[in-house]
């Protein structure tokens, strides 16, 4: 399967059931803003090591075609200029992918300057997490919509480090961060909490929806860690904050963390919910006034017909 994007590109790689991820030793064709005419073949490992702006696409397990963006180093002003030149050409050919890259790049630069980004994985760090969680919780109080928190920890990550070394461990964390990010929804905030611990803040998400996300991420990790054969899996704890809840941000973290502990204790590779799932129907799922009106349009017809048909 081939994916094209602008003048540079990448081939679809490492196709596995449900999720396609490039293997570290697989050859990728990278886009280098400076050498856009030549497609350079490198392995993922080289790209990561080589600090080069790389773009690659793959189909995730969701139905949509998604883009995975690996931004491995800030571009120099000169490179940025080259990147800008590439932009109109590429936009014409594909979707707004490059736009997104540039946006992300700007955001990335800014955030790095503010020291809110984790150096290894490029995810938000604990500092950003703390401020963001507080913001989302006040948004809940303001809008009435619940928010949820996912605390995740890799199982048997120490085995990976001990067996393959810390370099490989780090590489795995980078690939993991990408895979997790790809399987989250717009608006979800993924942070590295330190070590092999990750968190996701999910605005406007109740416990049930958060459970679906946790379930998906656990399955994603099963797929990407399976080839290693080291029993690396993901455990997660899920907590929810609602307007009726009196939890502080620290207490919400503690709640999700205790659920995570329970997931580990009861056998790993699973999630545990803190609290109970309530039956729900959110606003967008409700049948709207327009839809009801359209549905009811058949009413007169059915009644007339019914009266005429009655025996």
């Amino acid at each position: 399967m081939k994916e094209r994007m602008g003048s540079g590109t990448i081939k679809g790689v490492g196709q596995k059931e449900g999720l396609n991820l490039p293997k570290r030793d697989e050859t990728l064709v990278t886009v280098n803003p400076l050498s856009q005419k030549e497609e350079r073949r490198k392995t993922l490992a080289e790209i990561i090591k080589g600090h080069e702006a790389a773009v690659f696409l793959f189909d995730s397990r969701t139905l949509k075609k998604k883009a995975v963006i690996a931004l491995l180093e800030d571009l120099s002003p000169q490179e940025q200029e080259a990147f800008e030149q590439l932009r109109p050409l590429t936009l014409e050919l594909e979707d707004d992918l490059l736009e997104k890259i540039i946006e992300l790049k700007d955001e990335n630069n800014q955030l790095q300057a503010m020291a809110l980004i984790d150096g290894l994985t490029g995810l938000y760090n604990t500092r950003f997490f703390t401020s963001q969680l507080g913001k989302e919780m006040s948004r809940t109080r303001r809008t009435g919509l619940p928010c949820s928190l996912l605390m995740m920890d890799l199982d048997n990550f120490k085995t990976l480090n001990d067996t393959l070394g810390h370099m490989e461990g780090n590489h795995f964390l980078v690939a993991l961060a990408e895979a997790l990010r790809e399987n989250l929804r717009t608006g979800d905030t993924l942070c590295r909490f330190g070590g092999d611990e990750f968190t996701v803040i999910m605005p406007a998400t109740n416990l049930f929806e958060a459970a679906l996300v946790a379930d998906r991420l656990i399955k994603v990790v099963q797929v990407i860690a399976e080839p290693l054969g080291l029993g690396v899996t993901l455990s997660a704890g899920v907590g929810e904050y609602t307007t009726t809840s009196s939890l502080s941000p620290e207490e919400l973290v503690q709640a999700a963390d205790s659920a995570l502990y329970e997931a580990k204790r009861s056998g790993k590779n699973r999630f545990v919910l803190f609290g109970k799932v309530e039956p729900f129907l959110d606003e967008t799922s409700m049948v709207s006034v327009e839809e009801k009106e359209a549905l009811f349009a058949i009413k007169d017809h059915l009644q007339q017909k019914g009266e005429g048909d009655d025996r």
């Binding site: 969701t62 139905l63 679906l212 129907l281 967008t284 799922s285 409700m286 049948v287 839809e291 009801k292 549905l295 009811f296 058949i298 009413k299 059915l302 019914g306």
Partner: peptide, 22 residues
């Protein structure tokens, strides 16, 4: 069936399953 409530609930079921799971 031919009841309006059934029509509406059938539609709501379809809509929620579509929105939640695609």
């Amino acid at each position: 069936n031919r009841e309006l409530t059934s029509l509406t609930d059938a539609y709501a079921t379809i809509k929620v399953i579509f929105q939640m799971f695609g």
